[in-house]
């Protein structure tokens, strides 16, 4: 049995006159024990999908199941089996760290003690602050507490909606380490993020844009589908270089990417020499050009422009 199945889900908002399609015929499966990423920018439909799967929102069309239960007819069973960490911090700000945790354990008819082993590694970092009000915690600490509260009833499937948005690079890395160790305990995890680089930490990902899934596969396989050669180019004047490369006759696509610009040529057979001549002719200095490996962000850009 799959941890999550989504078949042709449609969700629309607004009135008859003006409708926005948040999810447009979305289908996907998450296997048991899988760490599955939903990758896309704000407004792509990630939160709508999560709210439908956590039984907080009704779809306008399609079917979905979580742990084998139907999200509409069997929502009560689902609610007992899942953990959900919404994008917005939703714990009780006026309860302490420990009180929040105890509260969530109690409403699921369990206790902190019964499931402590599951959250121990994370909670240990919060323990020095267990009497502090949740509202007074730092961003990273709030995030850890929210994760503990989502886990305290030992869910079968965990839904994390943009857990790392606005969090610095160090805390992001720590958070993904926690997810890896939860995965080892057999929990299926569905996580959404706007950070493309996090895709590579998932078993499989769905790239989503404007309510449509552009691609579903393992990050490695998505990257393999990028069949054209990709060059990375730099020179002493990066902005002028970008404009010049975008004007170049054999350029299919050129965009900034970290310290280089990524360049895809219309005709790969021509190779780099004509590009180098063109740039030298335009008196660029310190030109460097080499083949580069595409990553998920390159694939996302490619899929977006198809």
């Amino acid at each position: 049995m799959q941890a999550v199945t989504v078949e042709h889900i449609v969700k629309k908002y607004g009135s008859k006159k003006e409708t926005v399609t948040a999810l447009d015929d979305v289908s996907l499966d998450v296997a048991q024990g899988e760490l599955f990423g939903v990758i896309g920018p704000d407004g792509a439909g990630k939160t709508s999908l999560f709210r439908i799967l956590t039984t907080l929102l009704l779809a306008d069309g399609g079917h979905a199941t979580v742990d084998g239960f139907d999200v509409v007819k069997q929502y009560k069973q689902i609610r007992n089996r899942i953990g959900y960490m919404p994008g917005k911090f939703s714990l009780y700000q006026d309860l302490s760290v420990e009180e929040n945790l105890r509260f969530f354990a109690t409403i699921f008819n369990t206790s902190i003690e019964a499931n402590y082993d599951l959250i121990k590694d994370i909670y240990i970092q919060l323990e020095p602050f267990k009497t502090r009000r949740a509202g007074k915690l730092s961003g990273g600490m709030k995030q850890k507490l929210a994760l503990c509260c989502a886990l305290i009833h030992r869910p079968v499937v965990l839904f994390l909606d943009e857990p790392t948005t606005g969090v610095d690079a160090v805390s992001r890395k720590e958070f993904w380490e926690m997810l890896k160790s939860l995965k080892k305990q057999g929990i299926s995890i569905l996580v959404s993020t706007p950070y493309m680089d996090e895709a590579e930490l998932c078993d499989r990902v769905a790239l989503i844009q404007s309510g449509k899934i552009m691609s579903i596969d393992s990050p490695q396989s998505i990257i393999k589908k990028f069949t054209k050669k990709m060059w990375s180019v730099r020179s002493a004047e990066m902005f002028r270089l970008l404009n010049d490369l975008q004007q170049y006759s054999n350029t299919e696509k050129c965009y900034a990417f970290g310290e280089f610009h990524h360049l895809v040529l219309k005709n790969d057979a021509e190779g780099m020499d004509p590009v180098m001549h063109y740039l030298e002719h335009l008196s660029h200095l310190e030109i460097e050009m080499q083949l580069a490996k595409p990553n998920i962000e390159d694939c996302f850009i490619e899929l977006m422009s198809q």
Partner: peptide
């Protein structure tokens, strides 16, 4: 102050083009 959170990679680059142009 963190101007570009949450947008797609193409829009993020368009935003940076505006930054470059202003710097120029």
């Amino acid at each position: 102050d963190e101007p570009t959170g949450g947008v797609d990679p193409i829009t993020r680059r368009e935003f940076w083009n505006l930054i470059y142009r202003a710097a120029e």
